[in-house]
């Protein structure tokens, strides 16, 4: 028996909007720790890892570890039917091939049940070791989204370079080139508006921009985003989900031939 009640149902709506275009089908894993997902895109270039900790749910019942295969496009369709202020409850019986999403309006005057078929998915989990990163950049998520969008109108790839000067995002295309440098800036009114750069070693890596633009669909989940960079490692783009966990995207770099 599984029963997860999330008062801030809009979080789950936003999570699905953030991942549904990157991954078609995925297993959601439910354990005492929380509700989690790890899935790669079809080309095995990008990976999404989601964790919503059990403590973040108003009610969390998970009698045994369970993995539920879902089509994320279909799940997103169902969650779109929930209001932004609705409480969302996920329910599944042991051995069942369906999951039920229950949506309750804040005043309890409307209650809806949506039942979705589960599917068998061969999960390909990767072990992601803890790593010391050469550089960690924290910046406003809206700023990062703006940079990715702007650069993708010029080129297909972005070079991210972190030096003592700051973090530089560069691209080139048929019409020309673009460089955007963000310097550390901690003298702001609100902490979430700061750009903070922790650098152990300078690092420069090249990535396909279209994946970054997909990751920025998670922007509504967090005011800030963290980029963790090391040479020869996938970048980690992390959006923290307040009081619940995180959504992390890993993207393999382009490799010089």
């Amino acid at each position: 028996m599984l029963e997860l009640r999330l008062v801030q149902g809009s979080l789950l709506k936003k999570v699905l909007e953030a991942v549904k275009d990157l991954v078609n089908d995925a297993n959601f894993d439910c354990s005492a720790t929380g509700f989690s997902l790890q899935a790669m895109d079809s080309s095995h270039v990008a990976l999404v890892a989601l964790l919503l900790r059990s403590e973040g749910f108003e009610h969390y019942r998970c009698d045994r570890n369970i993995s539920m295969g879902m089509n994320l496009g279909n799940m997103a369709k169902m969650l779109k039917c929930a209001g932004n202020d609705d409480i969302i409850t996920l329910k599944a019986d042991d051995g069942s091939d369906v999951v039920t999403f229950m949506f309750e309006s804040p005043t309890q005057d409307k209650i809806a049940d949506f039942e979705m078929k589960l599917m068998d998915i061969d999960s390909e989990h990767l072990g992601i070791p803890e790593a010391e990163y050469h550089a960690i950049v924290r910046m406003p998520s809206s700023e990062f989204a703006r940079i990715c969008k702007d650069l993708s109108s010029i080129g297909d790839t972005v070079v991210i370079s972190v030096t003592k000067e700051g973090v530089k995002f560069s691209t080139r295309g048929d019409i020309g080139t673009a460089n955007i440098v963000c310097r550390q800036n901690t003298t702001v009114d609100k902490p979430e508006e700061a750009t903070v750069i922790e650098m152990n070693e300078p690092v420069s890596l090249t990535f396909a921009l279209r994946y970054f633009n997909s990751f920025t669909k998670a922007t509504p989940l967090s005011n800030t985003v963290t980029l963790s960079l090391s040479s020869e490692l996938p970048v980690v783009v992390e959006y923290k989900i307040a009081e619940m966990g995180y959504i992390r995207f890993y993207l393999a770099p382009k490799i010089e031939d």
Binding site: M40, H44, V45, E124, H125, L126, L233, A252, K254
Partner: peptide, 14 residues
């Protein structure tokens, strides 16, 4: 010239 890396080149199956 560069080519797109794949995640399996960096992470092992769990």
């Amino acid at each position: 010239k560069s080519s797109q890396g794949r995640l399996e080149s960096f992470f092992k199956p769990a």
